[in-house]
Simulated assay, not measured.
Amino acid sequence: MKIVCKACGKTHKSTPKLEASLQTLQPGSHLRMKCGQCGEPILLGRDMLHQSVELKDQAAPFIGKQVKPPEPPDTSWLEDGAFEEDEIVSDIPQAMVLMPEGPGRDQVIKALTGLGYRAETALDIDHALERMQFFNYSSIVMHADFGGGSLDDNPFHRYMATMNMARRRYIFYVLVGPAFSTFYNLQALATSANLVVKDKDTPYFGVILRKSIPDYEELFGPYMEELKVQRK
C-alpha cells in the first residue's frame, strides 16, 4: 500500500504495523499521519486497504506456475504491543549528488550522510532527470561541469530553474564549481540555487551545510508555514 501526500506529492511506504491498525478502524474513522517532507497531515482510512486487496485480486489470474509468490508478512512486531494511532511513518531524507568521481564528490557524500541524508549519485543528466520523476529529494548537489557544457545549457539545471514552486521550495539545491564564491547569496539567487560552493571548499561541506540550512529555514520557514496555512 502506497501513501501519497496530496500537498507535496511525497510517497510514503506503508508498514505491517500501520496496515494492522487500519484493519481495526471503524467505518468512517481515520488515522492521521504527518508527511515527512512538508508536514501536512495525511488522513488514512480502512478503504485504502480494500483498494490494495482489489488490485491484488485483479492481478491473481496472471499468476502462473513460473511466478513465485511473496513471502508471508513479518508479524514479529505483534509482541511489541498495539500500534499507536499518532505514530508517524517517516522516511530518511534523500539527496542526489551530481558530480564527477573524485575526492570532491566523496567529501560531499560523506557530509550529507553525516547529516542524516541517504545520498545517491546519477550516471548522467538523463539518469538524473529520470530519477526526479520517481523520487522526492530533499537536497540536490550538482557540479557546474556535470554533463559537460555550460551551466546555462545544462538540461538538469534548466529543469530545476523552471520547476513548479509547489515542489521546488522543498528541495535544497546546491551548485558547486570553481567560479562560485561559497555563501555568496547573490550568485545563488542569480543561478536559481539555494547555495553555491567553491570547489576548494568541498572538504568543509559538512560545516557549510550546517551553517546554510538553518539560515535558509530561518529566512523561508515562516513563509512556507504560511503557505501551508493557506493550502497553497
Rank of each mutant, 00 (worst) to 15 (best):
M160T: 00
V108H: 00
M165S: 11
R32P: 00
S138R: 15
V67Q: 11
M1N: 03
V89E: 15
I42W: 05
Y223N: 08
F83P: 00
G81D: 04
Q23F: 07
L43I: 00
T24G: 04
T202W: 05
L227M: 15
T202R: 00
V197K: 09
C5E: 01
R131Y: 01
P73W: 13
P69D: 01
V174L: 01
A166E: 09
Q187E: 13
F156Y: 15
Q94L: 15
Q66I: 12
A119Q: 12
A82F: 13
Q58L: 14
D74E: 08
H157V: 05
A193L: 10
G148F: 04
R231A: 10
C5P: 05
K228D: 12
W77L: 03
A60E: 09
I63D: 03
L219K: 14
L43H: 09
G206V: 06
Q37H: 10
L98G: 02
N164G: 03
E101S: 08
A166R: 15
A7C: 00
L78N: 10
L227P: 01
G104V: 00
Y204R: 14
D215F: 10
Y170V: 00
A161Q: 02
F205Y: 10
G177D: 06
G39W: 06
P222L: 09
Y159N: 12
I213C: 07
G102H: 07
F172C: 04
I213E: 12
K10H: 14
A59K: 13
K110I: 02
G149F: 06
Y117D: 04
K211R: 14
F62N: 07
D152A: 15
K211E: 12
N185Y: 13
L186Q: 15
Q23V: 06
P93G: 10
S181H: 14
R231H: 11
A82G: 00
E87I: 04
H143P: 00
L25A: 10
P100N: 05
K56R: 11
V97Y: 06
E217V: 09
R167F: 12
D215G: 07
S139Q: 11
L227F: 10
M96V: 12
K228A: 12
D47V: 09
L195R: 03
P214G: 08
K200P: 02
K68C: 00
F135M: 13
V53G: 03
M33D: 06
Q94K: 14
L195K: 07
D126L: 08
